[in-house]
Design a binder for these strands. Sequence first.
RNA 1: GGGCGCGUAGCUCAGCGGGAGAGCACUCGGUUUACACCCGAGCGGUCGCAGGUUCGAACCCUGCCGCGCCCACCA
Length: 839
Amino acid sequence: MNPPRPTLPERPTIDGLEPRWAGRWEELGVHRFDRDRPREDVFAIDTPPPTVSGSLHVGHVFSYTHTDVVARYRRMRGQAVFYPMGWDDNGLPTERRVQNHFGVRCDPALPYDPAFEPPEKPGDRQIPVSRRNFIALCERLTETDEVAFEELWRRLGLSVDWSTTYRTIGTRARAAAQRAFLRNLARGEAYLAEAPTLWDVTFRTAVAQAELEDRERPAAFHRLLFTRADGTDLEVATTRPELLPACVALVAHPDDERYRDLVGGTARTPVFGVEVPVLAHRAADPEKGTGIAMVCTFGDTTDVLWWRELQLPTRAVVGRDGRFLPEPPAGVDPAEYAPLAGATVHAAREHVVARLREAGRLVGEPERITHAVKFYEKGDRPLEIVTTRQWYVRNGGRDADLREALLRRGRELDWHPPHMRARYENWVEGLNGDWLVSRQRFFGVPFPLWYPLDEHGEPAHDRPIVADEAALPVDPSTDAPPGYTEAQRGVPGGFAGDPDVMDTWATSSLSPQIAGGWCSDDDLFRRVFPFDLRPQAHDIIRTWLFSTVLRAHTEHDTLPWRHVAISGWILDPDRKKMSKSKGNVVTPMALLEQYGSDAVRYWAAAARPGTDTAFDPGQMKIGRRLAIKVLNASRFALSTGAAPGAVTAPLDRALLAELAVTVDAATAALDEFDHARALEAVERFFWHFCDDYLELVKARAYGEHGDDAAASARAGLAAALSVLLRLFAPVLPFVTEEVWSWWQDGSVHLAPWPDAGELRAQAGDPDVLTAATDVLTAVRRAKSEAKVSMRTEVGKTVVTAPPDVLARIALAETDVRAAGRIEELQLREGPALEVQVLL
RNA sequence: GGGCGCGUAGCUCAGCGGGAGAGCACUCGGUUUACACCCGAGCGGUCGCAGGUUCGAACCCUGCCGCGCCCACCA
């Protein structure tokens, strides 16, 4: 009985597959998470939420494809894959975008206006709105961005369950961030402190260690003359002469002979005439400048160290706006300070240097240098250090036990590739303080806190009023705290809301909890948490990865996930990180349209995990060629009447043996998250299948050598094709699904992952195929050298080989003769394989 | 200054103790009824340099050179 022949397209094409199959997958719920499955059957992915106020570039396509390959593989392995998508619409980028788009600005002091509607066109002046109104506008705008993102992801073929999405500014995320903070607070892990803080003067907010980056900037060493107690000059070098009025001490190394006599005494600052102590500290470097440093409050983090350890007074001069404070610090000559009041740092420097020169207290000319200066990663002016009150969360930066525990978590986690763990350890070991989580911004998750006001209307910061967990999320700028009414806001004896918002990572660090339904869907949470996989890029190990580990460690006493897969970056052909501007020139959608999604996925999947990779359209062309080849080869195999059955011919059984090896290799690689190695193995086999096996069995499958011989070939083709399509399915979801639909029921993406054991049950000696291929290759070479067509008939071919090889060739003789168009094949014993083609 | 990774064919990269590989590019050939978005064949490399271990090293060890990244320092 012959099974019905599948309907095969006349000229198959990969164009247009994406919308058709993406739509079908959604209709059929192919990617739907089955939440009834027990935890051990679940594979949960903590998908990175892309920033929706930016645009997606090829780097996103690259790394999200890696994750999708894993998701599809796990699904075929029979696991219930929890693969949600988050949108990161929280933070500064969205704040700026919403301001510009609607012409508004957030003023947390304003009351919520439920009737507020933004103007149709943004006006010249930004309209101030309450935080709650601002968040509503953000949600509205980002919704449209998210539609465009989703469309791209669907076209790329991400097998996300689109019924499980979340937003980092959404209600669940705000509630989770606030709940986690309140629990940090309750356990003593969060605390409020007034301390010197790295401060961005443009955004007027504190920033955390994790958000810093160094930039090389021009600067100049100025050599200043202080006056010793005995009236003689003391030369001190500084790159920040404008901070002279903030000088609180001079510091030299305890072993530095030059200053030993000075230590313990005092010196007087030039121009401003302040007497400051001269002290010794090991952090002073005798090699730098003149070996004695001017300590200011605060020029850099070393100043903070000295200020703290030597218990120095504070003479602050730079304000939160980056300008000099209106009043001089204690002890500073008011007349000399007066011209500095309100000045920018730059103007103040010019003025102070001019005064030093006039006073004869500047030695020579400033020496130009370049040195690294700390910047907020999103900022464009150097950070200042100002004293402010901030919330901190303990992260091991000041606590050896916690640090050690977090290092242990890092070792407990499975890193792919393994060397990326070093980044984590490097970071944890280098932490120099707790996590500063408060930001003096408007848009973000507010602290769920209020402070009681005393009879003078002053807030009692040491007695915060916390929100009820059941009421979360709250906005203390518009909600009244428990036990108070809105009328008591801002009045003596009443309350004031905490004005700050949390660091964006304070929300993002909870992505598994947010996506997994922590405290909102306990049943779901039990089935997915801790997650199995966190995919992410290496540049945010210190932020996202670290803070997520920290949060899970303190809240759940566990890792947030078992594995982390670190993806590389996409580099320009000139080996620089692909910049956004360049990335936008080639939009991901245009690439998908030009080459096809499978082809672009191929390019991504072919890159080694964790390796920075060149943007290479050449690889996409190869991927496109592969996808088309899958169509054509499948159509051809099926056109012969390929159908399941007994595989009996030695050549066909050899193919299955090789295929089993390929299945093992692909499976092992994917178990290790190595999509590239898996793809390489499958691809190599596939081209061998097309170039050699298909050519060898073509005639037999057509029935030219009898029905029994044909049946084995057709069975071999069907078995091989079925396995190949499934092996390719995670990387090439569209073309494999298309071919699958020609002859199989259901989705290839829900078909079981191939089983090497089943193949081996029908497999034979793989060397039969190798031997047959070797002879065929030799015949082709002969024809090439003779510059004749491959169809040229060969009268006689003499194969010399050891007996075992001859025996294998004999088992495939019919196929070898047909493929090589050889009339007569003579087999002779000899030491090594040699093929003589008599044309 | 500390750490991690990488230097293999013109290009992009795989291989990481026993035959130096793939794709692209290049050359030559082929109107092959699965595929011209094709097929076949070929050319091309003292595996960064120098030592060492080993019967044997692209692969292990040491040092050096170059590139990239992370962290630290920032008078």
